[in-house]
């Protein structure tokens, strides 16, 4: 750290700086956001694939839910895998949100706060640009959704959960009937569908952004491939999940 002192013209007014003076660098914040974001991305992809087992019928779905609780027993205790995931995800979500808020406030300050004039965007407002600009909104929607989702299908807390909610026991799991009961209520299904659209937008920008944030140089060709992969992952995760409430509402699953 032996950078020369910044040159300052003599006799000029004191310099006001638009950045920050915190010891916590924005570079570190962006690495944390990128890594935790990729953890969430991998998680939602695996979660979606697991959800699709609902199409194999009640027994397959319930036994999958039961396996999640007993996975790797006796190496891991009952619900060991679930608790490892819960702790990792909880720590990640807190870190992700804290960094997002810090960066957002720094960005506002650097742009000029409330006094900043709006700038016309050269890139227009296509899907990928819209996804980037709405990260904070889709992020808040996802946070509220995750809380609702846990109350609905994990803890079974009303009014989020359906009336007939049955908690899992050491012997068996009732994930299938809980899911059907929950999605049979159209407002609940609507919440899930809207949340999945928000997730698709969040993934669309987040996956591209995380690659840049990890310091990986992306050329113009590679950028197109990256954007296409992000779109594919976003659509697969969102549409894969959206089919389930639609299937319940249309009576395909009951």
């Amino acid at each position: 750290m032996s950078a020369p002192a910044p040159a300052r013209p003599s006799g000029s007014a004191p310099v006001t700086r638009a950045g920050h003076r915190s010891r916590f660098s924005s570079v570190a914040a962006k690495y944390i956001m990128a890594i935790t974001g990729l953890i969430f991305s991998a998680y939602v992809l695996v979660h979606m694939i697991g959800n699709l087992k609902v199409y194999q019928g009640p027994e397959a779905f319930n036994s999958y839910a039961h396996w999640l609780r007993n996975a790797f027993y006796p190496v891991l205790p009952y619900e060991g895998l679930l608790w490892i995931l819960r702790v990792v995800l909880l720590v990640s979500v807190i870190a992700h949100i804290v960094c997002a808020l810090i960066l957002k406030s720094r960005a506002r300050r650097a742009r000029g706060g409330a006094r900043a004039p709006s700038i016309r965007r050269r890139r227009g407002l296509g899907l990928s640009v819209f996804a980037g600009r709405s990260m904070l909104v889709t992020g808040v929607v996802l946070l509220l959704f995750v809380i609702f989702h846990i109350l609905d299908l994990t803890t079974g807390t009303s009014p989020a959960a359906p009336d007939g909610f049955q908690a899992a026991t050491h012997e068996s799991s009732y994930a299938y009937s809980n899911l059907v009961d929950s999605f049979s209520r159209w407002p609940a299904s609507l919440i899930y569908i809207v949340a999945m659209l928000a997730l698709a937008l969040h993934l669309l920008h987040g996956l591209v952004s995380s690659v840049y944030d990890l310091g990986i140089g992306v050329g113009s060709k590679a950028r197109n491939i990256l954007a296409a992969v992000a779109l594919l992952v976003a659509l697969v995760v969102a549409l894969g999940n959206i089919t389930i409430p639609v299937a319940v509402l249309t009576g395909l699953i009951s």
């Binding site: 750290m1 032996s2 950078a3 020369p4 910044p6 700086r17 638009a18 950045g19 920050h20 003076r21 660098s25 924005s26 570079v27 914040a29 962006k30 960066l103 720094r106 960005a107 300050r109 650097a110 742009r111 700038i119 965007r121 050269r122 890139r123 640009v129 980037g132 600009r133 990260m135 920008h205 591209v208 952004s209 840049y212 944030d213």
Partner: peptide
Amino acid sequence: RRARGVVESAEEEFGPCSVYGE
């Protein structure tokens, strides 16, 4: 040494990047 100096100074002077691409 350059990266440490330049990035620290850039953080003091400017905002963080959100990969908007503008």
